[in-house]
Amino acid sequence: MKSLDSWHFFKVMKKYPVALNYNETIRATLLNESNDFLKMSGLKKTDIRIHHEEFISFTALIDKIRKDHLGSVVFIDLWGAWCGACLYDIKHKKALGMDKIFEKYKVQTVYLCTLSPKKEFDYYINKLDMTGDHYFFSREQKQEAKGKFNVYAYPHYMFLNKNGELINDDVPRMVITTKGVARLNQDFIDLVKRLSE
Score class of each variant (00 low, 15 high):
1 M>K: 15
3 S>K: 10
5 D>C: 08
9 F>A: 04
10 F>H: 14
12 V>M: 14
12 V>I: 14
13 M>L: 13
14 K>L: 15
18 V>D: 13
20 L>H: 06
22 Y>S: 11
25 T>C: 10
29 T>N: 13
30 L>I: 00
32 N>R: 13
34 S>P: 09
35 N>H: 09
37 F>Q: 03
38 L>A: 14
39 K>M: 06
41 S>Y: 01
42 G>H: 03
42 G>E: 10
46 T>R: 11
50 I>Y: 11
51 H>F: 11
55 F>C: 00
55 F>R: 03
56 I>H: 07
57 S>G: 04
57 S>M: 06
59 T>F: 07
61 L>M: 14
62 I>C: 05
62 I>W: 03
64 K>G: 02
65 I>F: 04
66 R>K: 14
68 D>Y: 09
69 H>T: 11
70 L>G: 06
71 G>Y: 14
73 V>E: 08
76 I>Y: 05
76 I>P: 08
78 L>M: 13
78 L>W: 01
79 W>K: 05
80 G>H: 00
81 A>N: 00
81 A>K: 01
82 W>V: 01
82 W>P: 05
83 C>M: 02
83 C>E: 04
84 G>E: 02
84 G>M: 03
85 A>P: 04
87 L>A: 01
90 I>P: 10
94 K>F: 10
95 A>T: 14
97 G>V: 11
97 G>A: 12
99 D>A: 04
101 I>C: 04
106 K>N: 15
109 T>Q: 13
109 T>P: 15
117 P>Q: 15
119 K>S: 12
120 E>A: 15
122 D>Q: 07
123 Y>M: 13
123 Y>V: 09
127 K>A: 05
128 L>F: 02
128 L>V: 01
136 F>W: 04
138 S>E: 00
139 R>H: 06
140 E>D: 15
141 Q>D: 07
141 Q>Y: 01
143 Q>K: 15
144 E>G: 04
150 N>Q: 02
151 V>Y: 05
151 V>H: 06
152 Y>P: 00
154 Y>V: 03
155 P>D: 10
155 P>H: 08
156 H>V: 00
160 L>E: 11
163 N>P: 14
163 N>D: 14
167 I>R: 07
168 N>A: 12
169 D>S: 12
171 V>Q: 03
173 R>G: 03
177 T>W: 00
177 T>M: 05
178 T>R: 08
179 K>V: 01
182 A>Q: 12
185 N>C: 01
187 D>V: 08
190 D>R: 13
190 D>F: 06
191 L>R: 02
191 L>T: 10
